[in-house]
Every structure is written in C-alpha cells, then in structure tokens.
Design a protein around this nucleic acid. Sequence first.
DNA 1: CGAACCCTTGATACGCTTCAACAAGAGTGG
DNA 2: CCACTCTTGTTGAAGCGTATCAAGGGTTCG
Lengths: 257, 257
Amino acid sequence: MDTQTTLGGGGARNLRPLRLRRVVPGADPALAAGGAAFWASVFGPSLASDIVAELQELAQVRELPAGSLLMSSREPARDLCLIARGDAALGSAPADGSFQPERSVQGPGWLDAGSAWLGGMPAQDAVAVSDVVLVTLPRADVQALMQRCPELARRLVLTLARQVQSLTLATHDLMHKDAEGRFAAWLLQRCAGEAASDGSITVALNERKRDIASQLAITPETLSRLLRQLSRKGLISVAGYSVKVLDLAALRALAGV
Amino acid sequence: MDTQTTLGGGGARNLRPLRLRRVVPGADPALAAGGAAFWASVFGPSLASDIVAELQELAQVRELPAGSLLMSSREPARDLCLIARGDAALGSAPADGSFQPERSVQGPGWLDAGSAWLGGMPAQDAVAVSDVVLVTLPRADVQALMQRCPELARRLVLTLARQVQSLTLATHDLMHKDAEGRFAAWLLQRCAGEAASDGSITVALNERKRDIASQLAITPETLSRLLRQLSRKGLISVAGYSVKVLDLAALRALAGV
DNA sequence: CGAACCCTTGATACGCTTCAACAAGAGTGG
DNA sequence: CCACTCTTGTTGAAGCGTATCAAGGGTTCG
C-alpha cells in the first residue's frame, strides 16, 4: 500500500530505545549534579549565590541505574525530588512488577516538588528510564531556608504554579480530545523551536512507543495505527523512531479543541 | 421494569438545581467575606492575626450574581482568586456562550492560587454557579507580604501542593478508569463523613446532572444510564436529586484501580 | 540457534457518544 | 387559571472510537 512497507523498517532510522538502557553518555558529573547551572534550571536564573550554596549543602545527590524506583506511593515523601541528569517516568506501579507511565520528566528538572509538603504518600510512583542523577532536598531544611530567603519561596511557588497549569491542561486534553488530537498536541509540544530550514521538523522519539502510548492513555496498537493514519494523510512521515512533521498547520488543527 | 418507573418522578425528592439560581440564602456577609474564619479555611488555622489583617486590607471583595464570569482565559491573571461564599465552576468557555465545567469549587475555598504567578492567561475560565462572594488578592501585594512573612509563603506552597496532588489524581482517574469507575469515585468523595445510623448514606446532588456529567467527562445520557444501572444492581437508590448509597464496599470496588 | 522483547496489522468486541423522541417542571404571559 | 415555551432528564437505536485478542515479523542477546 505505502511505498514504505514497514514503519519499523529502513536502515537510516535512529535506534530503538531499549527497555532498560544500560549505556549512558558520560556527561560531566560536576556540571550535572552540582553546578550552578543545575540550580538555575530548576529554580530559575539569578538566585543569590549563597542560597545556591546552601541548597547544594542540603542536597543529597545519588547516581542510580535505569529501572530504579525513584519514588514510591507506598512510603511517605519527606524530600523534594529533582532529576539532574537522565530521564524518568511518573506513573503508577500496580504491584505486579509492571509500570504504567503517565508523565515523563527529563533532567534537569523537577520530579516532585509538592508531595513532601503534604505529609502523606505521593500520588505517583517514579522510575528511572535511563541512568539518572537523583537530587533530593529534605523538606524541613528547605522550609527553614525559605524562612530566611523569601525569594526561594517565590521560586518554589512559581514551580508549583507551573505544574498546576500543566496538569490542568493535561486533564483538559484528556476530557475533550480524542486520541488523534492528544497525539497531535503531544507531537507539537515536542516540536517546540526545532524548525528546519525547509519548514519541516524532525522529532526523535526517545522513549519506547508503548510508553508514549501510555502517556497519551491509549494502547500501543492505537498509537501504531495513528502514526500510519497521519502519514497516509501526509501530515507526518514516520521512519522508525524519527517522525518528520510535514504539515504543521493541519496538525495544529487536529490538536486544537 | 422497575418498581420506580421514572428516576425524575416521586414527590419526596429534593428540588432541581436551576441553570442560574436567582435566590440565595442570606448568609452572614461579615462572616463569609471578612471573618478570620474565612482566612483560616483557605490558608489554614492559626495564621498570625496581623497577617490576616493585612490580607484583609489587600483583599478586594465583590458580591456577584449567579452566571457571572469570574475568571477568563482570555485576559491575564493578576490576582489570586478565592470564593468566600457560593459555588463556582472551572472549565472552558468555547466562545459560543456555552460552558463546559471541568471542576467545581465550593466556598469558602481557592478558585485559582496559581495562574497569577505565571504572568500569562489562566488555563481555565470560571463562572459563578450560585451567587458568590469573590475575593481577589493582587499577586504583587501577596508577594510583598510573603517577603515579610515566610509563614504565609509556606501556606501558599501547601495550597499549591494540595492542588497538584488533586489534579494528579484526577488525571490518573481519567487515564485508567471507565465512566462507571469515575462516577463511583466521585460519589464516594461526596460521601466523606456523612454516614447515617443504619450505614446508608444519602448524597444530595447540588448541581445539574449534566454538570456532574461534564465534570466526569461523560455525556448526560451516559450518566443517566449509569444511575439506572447502579440502582438496578442495588448499589445505590436514586430519587431525583438525592442518591442513597446502599453498598459502600461494592462502590469502592468499582472505584478502585 | 532460541528466547525475549518490541512493533505492526487484522478481526472482533465493547463502551460511550450521537441523534432523535418524549415526559415533566418551571417560567411567562394571556 | 390555562396555554405555551424553554430547559432538564430519560430512554432507545445506531454508529464511532478505542480496547482486546491473536498472529506475525524484526531485532537483540544469550
């Protein structure tokens, strides 16, 4: 039917993401774990350097292999959790060993800034998708630091406000968009600022397709059919784990409302 | 088929909620709008009284009729929004005059504590379901107050963290539960702490059924069929706008996972 | 090689929406 | 008071969207 018989075929495609990635590019650990750049990317730029130093003092930095459980909904959250390097997934682990990712986080960024304040269990579990550098800040210490530095409090409020907005948009999508619309919106978000010269944009899928499907609340089968449909309609062109966006406007129309 | 021919029938049921309620019980305005009780219910108890006084100073209190637009996703959010009295609905207003409620808020409580910090448009619209007393706090002033009172900052972080958790649970439900499960969960949440002597619990539906359906992301038709199904199975008993829960355990089983 | 894992494709089943029709109030105005 | 309209909820029939089940091929690893 298509000139391209198999989506998974072709030689020039990028490699498939493994379930557990064992090899990791050896990034500079000093930069990733402890640099001021890291704190700037999670708390925003130009935070007073003495505060950054205190945060660095409080932070517990751990390097963990892919597959590690970073956060469990079965034990109380005492720390604010961040990812300095690597990818992680938030979702639910239904005790039978499987894991349903609901949201993905790429380092450097926040994993969970909220649960620790509530004195109960976090609402989600988290696992490392790649090898990660996990940074944890004890809530009590952060609270004490906030007492002396109102600016830090403001940054934290900002972080939480952003997350509220992001989650609000996510629920809106789940309530009002069908699978095609949600995938279009997901793809557009991955396009942000990566325009090529001819107007086409290529998006590399870093995760397994079944994890993408899981985040979109659809089955892997449906995602596969969706990719086929959209490429048949000429909106995208798929080669393994790389998706080229051909018709940005049409994709936006699908994603809108 | 049933002994009860029509769900809407029967004489002893409670009244139907109107689309725009015009009559409102005349509660004590002093208590609702300005009392320390109000601030305690939104910021938590035992906040320093001088801070409460300053908040009271900053707050702009407005009494608005049912149907009013309280918040628009088309104009930037400069204030933190609270409801002192009455009911409001957050959702999307698709410009054609209709309104799709996604979440309901009952006073006293927060309407939107997050958007104002982001310097953009809020992600949702809000309308008053009943007559409401709307309280707004200019973000800049709250920020200045937080500088002098770290405790206030902590309370705000707590508020936002709670909302993050609530939204996380909502997305989880939308992703993994079917309509029956979501409705069961919704009903159970309304049961909280209202147990009668014989173990049965009666829940009064304050909103239109179509608004409940909208919050559950289902159609009114499906909700109607769902009520019929569950009452046929003996889990609940429906009389107009009052639902009696008969089998709490079975309902929990439906809502679980 | 076989085993494990992933993606794809097809056939089928089910949940929910859509559309249409109807009954019951609630508001309106004679 | 009644007739009329508007809105809400209910019910049934039909159809779409997505899940489920089953089969097959590709790739990686032991």
